[in-house]
Structures are given as C-alpha cells and as structure tokens.
C-alpha cells in the first residue's frame, strides 16, 4: 500500500509539472487570446483593454492556477479559430482515438501472448525461426508505412474497405469499428512483433531457472509448469512493455489518423498546430500526456501485483 501511495504522489507531481511546463511554454510565445480575438490590425489600446477584461495581465502563476482549476473541471478554454469551447471540439473525437488505441492493444495481447509462448516452446525449430524472421522485419516497419501498405493491399487491390472513408460511432457503431480495423492492425503489428520477441526470450530465460525443475519434481506436466510457473514470471517484463505500448499507441494514432483520414484527436491537434490555435493544442497535449501518465501509474500498480518482490525500497 505504501508503494501505491508513493507512486500516486509521484504521478500527481508529474501531472502538475507537465501541465505547468506546457502552460508556461505556450505562455511565452507571442500572441494571446486578445490578439487572436481582435486580429493584428487592431489598435494597441483596444488590445490592452481586452487583455485587462480577459484577465491576461494578471501574474503568470495566478493565471496558471485558474487555468488548471478550469482544466480539472473539464473547461479547456475557447478555440481561437472556431470560437467554441475546446471541450466541445474534443469530446466527440476523443472516443475515436481512445477506441483505436484500445482495439490495437487488444489485438496485440490476443496475438502476441499465444505466439510468444508458441515460439518459446518451439525455439530453435524451423517454425520458430520463420516466425522470428518475419517478426524482425515487422519490428522495422514504421506503423504509418504499414498503414499505407494495408491501404494498398486491402483497400485498393482487394477493395475490402474504402480508403479515406469513415463512419462516426454515433451513426453506426459497428461500421465505425470496421473502419478502425485496418488502422488498428497497422498500429498493432510492429508492437505485436516487439512483444512476441520479448515474451519468447523471457519464457526461454524463465524455463531454465531452478524453480522450474522444482515444479517438475512435484509431478507437474509441461502445461502445468508453463501456465502455473513460467508464464507468470515471464510476463513481468512484458507488462512493462505493454504499459509503454499503450501510451505509444495513443500517440501513434496521431500519425495513423492521418494515413487513414480518421477525424480523431490527432487530426484536431495537427490542424490546430497549423492554425496556431493554442488553447486547443495546449488542451490536447496536456490531455494526452495526462492519459499517458495515468496509464504508467496503473502499469506500476499492476507490476507490483505481478511481482511481489517490488517494494518501496526496491527500484
């Protein structure tokens, strides 16, 4: 419990630091809400008046804490370009990106777990070597290029989906999911390869340890040794990788959304960057970073459950 508390405090400090740094970074760049509202051809007096009215002349820390308080309550400010609350812009897009990350993650777990164990059990055989060669190549393919290849093969040649097409989850949930399948495969494939390689290596390493011999000496069969002993231990490093991967997938979907023309959070972020629509950029970045940090926290907790040797003193 002490471990969890310590991790929780660390997480909160990290969240606070990152929100502070991002707010600070966007505060020092020229251009603010007043300038955005009135345009560059406005008079300095009118700008100054609006700044006073909007509270932009108050001390930095005061503005930061107000922004933070609003952010926590779900008020992310107002977009310069669209003059609408950022929260409204994001709320309908967030489920798309989160859904993509979750589907990709599920794909990775479902495929890499059996494949990693299978290759470990057959290590050195021809099938293992074949899978490992394919694996090594998959690890080197950038996910957006994978996306392009999938678009070509399954979209243009086999015509299994319309490239660039998309259906909102509000219109038809299952068609929405079907349009996410290929983007998710593109995100998942390189991660599957990484996790198969790690799990295979980890299983082989664990299988050589003394406690495995003990398990056999009690009359366990190979399956029993594998599922009750080896896998539990072999999963420990894999859990760390998966935790990092979930965060990676969320960020990776920014790029994949461009490949498959999906209107998710990544799209909003990129267009907002090109329009210099800072409130939106700020909100999306802090939001994604927050999700990543909270994910890392959860992984730390799961990690501790998986490995009882981790304690407050350790690591």
């Amino acid at each position: 419990m002490k471990y969890a508390a310590k991790k929780l405090v660390t997480m909160l400090i990290t969240l606070l630091s990152i929100s502070f740094l991002v707010y600070f970074a966007f505060d020092i760049i020229p251009g603010d809400a007043a300038l955005a509202a009135l345009g560059t051809d406005s008079t300095p007096e009118r700008l100054e008046a609006l700044r006073e009215q909007l509270g932009l002349n108050r001390p930095f820390l005061e503005r930061y804490f107000e922004w933070l308080a609003n952010f926590v309550r779900g008020d992310f400010g107002v977009s310069y370009k669209y003059k609408m609350p950022v929260a409204d812009m994001i709320s309908s897009k967030l489920p798309i990106t989160v859904m993509m990350a979750l589907i990709s993650f599920a794909m990775m777990v479902v495929v890499s777990l059996p494949l990693g164990v299978y290759t470990a059990m057959n290590s050195g055989r021809r099938i293992d070597r074949l899978i490992m060669v394919v694996n090594q190549i998959m690890m080197s393919v950038p996910h957006f290029f994978m996306g392009i290849v999938l678009t070509y093969i399954f979209g243009l040649v086999l015509k299994l989906f319309t490239p660039g097409g998309f259906v909102s989850y509000e219109t038809d949930f299952w068609r929405f999911i079907s349009y996410l399948i290929f983007p998710c495969i593109a995100i998942a494939l390189p991660k599957i390869a990484m996790s198969v390689k790690l799990l295979r290596g980890s299983c082989i390493e664990e299988a050589a340890k003394d406690y495995v011999r003990t398990a056999y000496s009690k009359g366990n069969d190979t399956r029993g040794v594998l599922y009750k002993h080896v896998l539990r231990n072999a999963m420990i490093p894999v859990i760390t990788l998966w935790g990092m991967t979930l965060a990676d997938m969320l960020v990776g979907s920014i790029v994949i959304e461009q490949v498959f023309n999906i209107p998710g959070i990544g799209r909003i972020l990129l267009t907002s960057i090109s329009y210099r629509d800072y409130p939106v950029v700020e909100a999306v970045i802090v939001l994604i970073a927050a999700v990543v940090i909270v994910t890392n926290f959860c992984v730390d907790i799961i990690y501790q459950i998986a490995d009882p040797r981790i304690s407050v003193g350790g690591r």
Binding site: T10, T14, S17, I18, L21, V22, A25, F26, I29, A247, D248, L250, V251, G252, I254, V255, L269, I273, R276, Y278, V281, I285, I288, A289, V292, I293, N296
Partner: peptide, 19 residues
C-alpha cells in the same frame, strides 16, 4: 527525468513545432 520520460517524444516534438 521522469517528467520528460512520461512525455511521449512525438508529443514533445509537436510542442516544439507549434512554438
């Protein structure tokens, strides 16, 4: 270090680019 590490590299690059 932990704070920077928690910040995905592509996201950091996007912050730099937008600034």
């Amino acid at each position: 270090n932990d704070v920077v590490f928690a910040f995905p590299s592509i996201l950091l690059a996007l912050v730099f680019v937008s600034i």
